[in-house]
Amino acid sequence: MHIDAHRIYVHAGLDRGIARDAQSEITLLWKRYPKGDASGFEGRHVVHGHNSVAQGPELYQGRTNLDTGAWRTGRLVTGVFDDATPGGPVDFIVVHGPAQGG
């Protein structure tokens, strides 16, 4: 997990109602947000992956899912963030490579 002034970057997610320092490793590595869940965490935007969406990224008011299943789709998306701008990415870098199928 990495935290800046506006965002929390985490592999999978965080559970609301549980303090950041009390989050379990299982949650940080394996959480899946319900479809359409737009919540952030403690006033910060959550940036995560783990739940691949080939047509992603998924952008919500309080969170961004950057996982596009690049190993399978051949499409890697990286978010570009501005330290002076709260919320989600200000831009994206998209790299296309060979898809592995599956």
Rank of each mutant, 00 (worst) to 15 (best):
A12C: 02
D83L: 15
V46I: 03
I26R: 15
D91P: 05
V46L: 02
F41H: 06
G56I: 06
I18P: 06
D21R: 05
G69A: 04
L59D: 11
K35C: 10
F92C: 15
K35E: 09
L66F: 00
L66W: 00
I3T: 15
Q100T: 14
G79P: 11
V94K: 09
G13S: 05
H50K: 03
P34S: 02
P86I: 04
H96T: 12
H6C: 03
G56T: 04
A99F: 05
G101A: 15
A84W: 13
L76F: 08
K31Q: 06
V53F: 11
G88C: 07
G88S: 06
G87N: 04
N51K: 13
V46C: 05
H2L: 15
D21A: 11
D37F: 02
N65C: 12
V53N: 08
V77G: 03
Q23Y: 06
H45I: 02
K35D: 10
D82H: 06
D4G: 01
I26W: 15
Y60N: 10
Q100V: 14
W30L: 12
E42Q: 03
L14C: 08
G79Q: 13
Q23S: 03
L59I: 11
H48W: 01
A19V: 08
G102V: 10
A12L: 06
A38P: 13
T27S: 07
H2V: 15
D82G: 04
G88H: 06
T27A: 03
D21L: 07
V53Y: 10
I18F: 07
A38T: 11
T85Y: 13
Y60F: 14
L59T: 10
T85F: 10
G56W: 02
F81D: 09
